[in-house]
Design a protein around this nucleic acid. Structure first.
Length: 474
RNA sequence: GGCCCCGUCGUCUAACGGUUAGGACGUCAGAUUUUCAAUCUGGUAACGCGGGUUCGACUCCCGCCGGGGCUGCCA
C-alpha cells in the first residue's frame, strides 16, 4: 500500500469518524492486467495495523476476506452487470457511443495531433458512423468500447473542499472510455455508479484525479444524480520534488512496518503531512487527529516526505510506551540472540535504561548486548582522544578504576557511592571525572553509545565490573 | 504542446492588510561535572520576480518565472 494512498485513507477515516459517517472500503479492480495476488489482504492488514479498520465493505474477519454492508458487492469485478446496465442507459440516452477504433489507429491519431501541437483527443471518428453499420458490427461481435459524449460547449465547475472553485471547459475534456472491450468498466464509470449507489457523500483522493473530475461531474449530471463533495489532496513528493517514487526511498507502508515504525508514528507523521492544526502541537494520537482534523486546513501544495521527521516522531512515540509494554516488545528480540535473557528477573530494570535512547525496538539487542555476553573492547574505543583519554594515560586510569572499585564494599555498591568515589579519585589524581567514566563505561559495555557508566556498573555488580576491567587491562 | 493545480527557512508549516515573519524537523554551538541517535538552552535559515490596489502588503489584483499533475480500452 503506497503511503500516499494510506494518507488519503487516513484523511477519509478522520472525516468519517468526526462526522459520524462510515469508512467504506471498496476494491477497484477493473484492470484485469494489473491484478496482483494478495493485494486486498495486504491492504486490509495494513489498515488493521494502523487501526484504520473499515466500517463497511471489504474487511478481514478471522483472517478471511469478507464483505459486510447492505450496498455490496464492494469489489468492482463482482459488479460488472451493474456497470453494463448503466452504460447501456447512457447509450440509449445518447450520452455515450460505441467506438471500434483500434489501438493502432488511436496511437496514429495521437501522434499526428502531437505533431500539429494539438492536444491529443479522440476525433469522434466512430460517433459519425451510420446507425445500421454500428448495429451490424456489434452484432458481428466486433470488439469495441463505449465512450462518453462530452458536451463540448459548456464549462464545468465545482467547489473543491480543498482548492475552492475549479473550472474546466468542455472542449478540453476528452471523450473518455467508459466501458472497455473486455466488458470491464473504466475507473470513471465505476466510480460514479458505485459512489451513487453506495451513497458516498465525500470523495477524498489524490491530486492526480483533479483533471478527470469534470468527466465525473458530467457523468453525474447525465444520470441526474447529485455528485459527492470532492477533496483533492496534494501529492507526497520525493526530496527532489517529483512524485514520491521507489528509488528515492520506501513508498510502501509495509516497508515502514518492516523497518519497525510504530503505527502511532506513521499516522502522526502522515496526518501532519499536508495538514496542520493551526497550533504548535506536533504530537498527535489518532483520537486527537479525529478531533482536530479539518479539510479547510489541508495544504494545496505538494509535500516532501521528510524521513528525518518521521524518525523523530518514531522516537517520541517509542518513549511514550509504558515500560512493561516496552520490555515485553524488546524481550523476544533480545532472547533471539541471547537466550539467557529469558529468565532475567532484572530485564525491566535494564529495559528502562535504554528506552529513551533508541528509535527502533531492534536497536535494543545491541544496546543490551553487554548484559548477556562479554563485550569485545578495543583499545581504540578506550583511548578516545575526544574524551581526553590517551594511550599513555589509559593504563593509569584502568589501575585507578580497579583500585577505586575494589575499595567499595559490596553493600554500598550504588550509583551514588560510585559517583562519589570515582570523582574523588579523579580529583586526587588531577584527572577529569569524564576521563575515568569514559574508560569505565567503554570497558563494561564495549560500546561507543550505551546507558551511563553508573547505571551499567550497578546493574552488572562489583564482581563483574572488576572482571571486565581486569580483562581489558591485560 | 494543451488543460488544470500550486509557489513562506533545506523540509513540514503558522500568518487570513499593520508581527523583530512564529513553531517543528534538520543543521550548528553550548549545557547535561562520561558516551549518545535522549534531554535542555541558544544560533542559523524563508515571503520566486515584476507591476499595480492601499496610508500600509507574505496576505488582494494582473503579468512573468518556476514546480507539479493529467493528457491510456491504468487506477
Amino acid at each position: 500500500m503506497h503511503v500516499g494512498n494510506f494518507r488519503t485513507a487516513l484523511f477519509a477515516y478522520l472525516m468519517a469518524r468526526q462526522s459520524n459517517g462510515r469508512f467504506i472500503l471498496r476494491i477497484e479492480d477493473t484492470d484485469q492486467g494489473r491484478s496482483v495476488e494478495g493485494t486486498v489482504e495486504n491492504i486490509l492488514r495494513t489498515l488493521h495495523w494502523s487501526g484504520l479498520d473499515p466500517d463497511e465493505g471489504v474487511m478481514l474477519r478471522k483472517g478471511l476476506i469478507t464483505q459486510e454492508g447492505t450496498r455490496g458487492p464492494y469489489i468492482q469485478s463482482e459488479r460488472l452487470e451493474l456497470y453494463r446496465k448503466y452504460a447501456d442507459e447512457l447509450v440509449s440516452k445518447g450520452h455515450a457511443y460505441p467506438c471500434f477504433c483500434t489501438p493502432e489507429r488511436l496511437t496514429k491519431m495521437r501522434d499526428e495531433q502531437a505533431l500539429k501541437k494539438q492536444a491529443p483527443m479522440y476525433d469522434r471518428h466512430c460517433l459519425h458512423l451510420p446507425k445500421k453499420e454500428i448495429a451490424d458490427r456489434i452484432e458481428g461481435g466486433e470488439p469495441h468500447v463505449l465512450r462518453l459524449l462530452v458536451p463540448r460547449d459548456r464549462s464545468i465547475s465545482y467547489d473543491d473542499e480543498i482548492r475552492g472553485n475549479v473550472t474546466f471547459h468542455g472542449h478540453t475534456v476528452d471523450d473518455q472510455v467508459l466501458m472497455k472491450s473486455d466488458g470491464f468498466p473504466t475507473y470513471h464509470l465505476a466510480h460514479i455508479v458505485d459512489d451513487h449507489l453506495m451513497e458516498i457523500d465525500l470523495v477524498i483522493r489524490g491530486e492526480e484525479w483533479l483533471s478527470s473530475t469534470p468527466k465525473h461531474l458530467i457523468l453525474f449530471s447525465m444520470f441526474d444524480w447529485a455528485p459527492p463533495k470532492y477533496a483533492h489532496v496534494p501529492l507526497i513528493l520525493n526530496p527532489d520534488h517529483t512524485k514520491l517514487s521507489k528509488r528515492q526511498g520506501s513508498v510502501a507502508v509495509e516497508e515502514y512496518i518492516a523497518q519497525g515504525y510504530l503505527p502511532e508514528a506513521l499516522l502522526n507523521f502522515l496526518g501532519l503531512l499536508g495538514w496542520n492544526p493551526g497550533t504548535t502541537q506536533d504530537i498527535f494520537s489518532l483520537p486527537e487527529l479525529i478531533e482536530q482534523f479539518s479539510l479547510e486546513r489541508v495544504q494545496k501544495a505538494g509535500a516532501v516526505f521528510d524521513l528525518k521527521k518521521l524518525q523523530w516522531l518514531q522516537g517520541q512515540w517509542i518513549r511514550k510506551i509504558p515500560l512493561s509494554d516496552f520490555a515485553d516488545r524488546i524481550k523476544s528480540l533480545v532472547v533471539e540472540r541471547y537466550p539467557n535473557a529469558v529468565h532475567d528477573a532484572q530485564f525491566s530494570a535494564k529495559a528502562v535504561l535504554i528506552q529513551e535512547r533508541l528509535t527502533f525496538f531492534s536497536e535494543a539487542v545491541d544496546l543490551l548486548s553487554f548484559f548477556y555476553s562479554e563485550p569485545k573492547v578495543t583499545v581504540e574505543l578506550l583511548a578516545n582522544p575526544k574524551q581526553k583519554v590517551t594511550l599513555e594515560l589509559l593504563p593509569k586510569i584502568l589501575e585507578l578504576l580497579k583500585d577505586t572499585l575494589e575499595a567499595i564494599m559490596k553493600d554500598e555498591w550504588t550509583a551514588d557511592t560510585l559517583k562519589e568515589r570515582i570523582t574523588g579519585t579523579a580529583e586526587a589524581n588531577t584527572l577529569k571525572p569524564g576521563q575515568m567514566l569514559w574508560v569505565l563505561r567503554a570497558a563494561l559495555t564495549g560500546l561507543a553509545y550505551s546507558p551511563g557508566a553508573f547505571d551499567v556498573a550497578v546493574m552488572l555488580g562489583k564482581e563483574k565490573c572488576l572482571e571486565r576491567l581486569e580483562v581489558v587491562s591485560v
